[in-house]
Computed example of a mutant assay.
Amino acid sequence: MSSSSPTSRRPAFRVGTGFDVHAFTEGDFVTMAGLRIPHSKGILAHSDGDVVIHALCDALLGALALGDIGRHFPPSDERWRGADSRQFLRHARSLMQEQGYTLGNADITVICEAPKVGPHVQAMREVLAEDLGVDIGQISVKATTTEKLGFCGRGEGIAAEAAVLIERL
């Protein structure tokens, strides 16, 4: 189906997945879902290194067949140095709306040994729901560890994965 197909011929539902990872560096907080979470380390990244939002953006862009976050906000572009990733998420939302879709639901998993995600889950869900213009019940955020295996287990970095279902308006 070409991109010029009528809206009525677009699929009623589309699915996307996303994954992001960043190494830890010196610092005293990490940004997750737009929130500054106290931590003994910071994130090494071009933007704010928000793995939650980056994975979610990739999932949304993938569902729309619009590439990945790096295509829309290249790390080689100095405009995005230290950027607040919430603007990336709002951009993905606008692209979704332009194509005639809305978010059905999003399921995000943060992968790290520390910091503890649980105490921040509700606030994360609130921020993401606000930026996406949806009910908080459409956003799931949870966490897991790698049982001290791999780079996350050794405390070298943090990762997140996201899955989304979008539906035609």
Score class of each variant (00 low, 15 high):
Ser4Pro: 00
Pro6Ser: 14
Pro6Ala: 13
Thr7Val: 08
Ser8Cys: 04
Arg9His: 06
Arg10Met: 05
Arg14Val: 03
Thr17Gln: 11
Thr17Ala: 12
Gly18Met: 12
Val21Phe: 15
Ala23His: 13
Phe29Lys: 11
Val30Leu: 14
Ala33Ser: 14
Ala33Ile: 09
Leu35Asn: 14
His39Arg: 09
Ile43Val: 15
Leu44Ile: 03
Ser47Met: 05
Val52Trp: 07
Ile53Tyr: 01
His54Glu: 15
Ala55Cys: 08
Cys57Tyr: 02
Cys57Phe: 07
Ala59Val: 08
Leu60Tyr: 09
Leu60Gly: 12
Leu60Pro: 13
Leu61Gly: 03
Gly62Ser: 13
Ala65Gln: 14
Gly67Asp: 09
Arg71Trp: 02
Glu78Trp: 01
Glu78Thr: 05
Arg81Leu: 10
Gly82Asp: 06
Ala83Leu: 07
Ala83Phe: 08
Arg86Lys: 15
Arg86Phe: 07
Gln87Ala: 13
Gln87Asn: 06
Phe88Asn: 01
Leu89Asp: 06
Ser94Gly: 08
Ser94Trp: 04
Leu95Pro: 00
Leu95Gly: 00
Gln97Met: 09
Glu98Asp: 11
Glu98Ala: 12
Glu98Lys: 00
Gln99Pro: 00
Gly100Asp: 07
Thr102Gln: 13
Leu103Ser: 08
Asn105Lys: 12
Ala106Gln: 05
Ala114Gly: 07
Ala114Lys: 13
Pro115Glu: 08
Pro115Cys: 07
Lys116Met: 04
Pro119Trp: 08
His120Lys: 06
His120Asp: 03
Gln122Pro: 01
Arg125Tyr: 05
Arg125Glu: 14
Glu126Ala: 14
Val127Gly: 05
Glu130Trp: 02
Leu132Ser: 02
Asp135Glu: 15
Asp135Arg: 14
Ile136Pro: 03
Gly137Tyr: 08
Ile139Leu: 10
Val141Arg: 07
Lys142Trp: 04
Lys142Ala: 13
Ala143Gln: 13
Thr144Arg: 14
Thr145Tyr: 03
Lys148Pro: 00
Leu149His: 10
Phe151Pro: 13
Cys152Gln: 11
Gly157Asp: 04
Ile158Pro: 06
Glu161Ala: 14
Ala163Pro: 00
Ala163Arg: 15
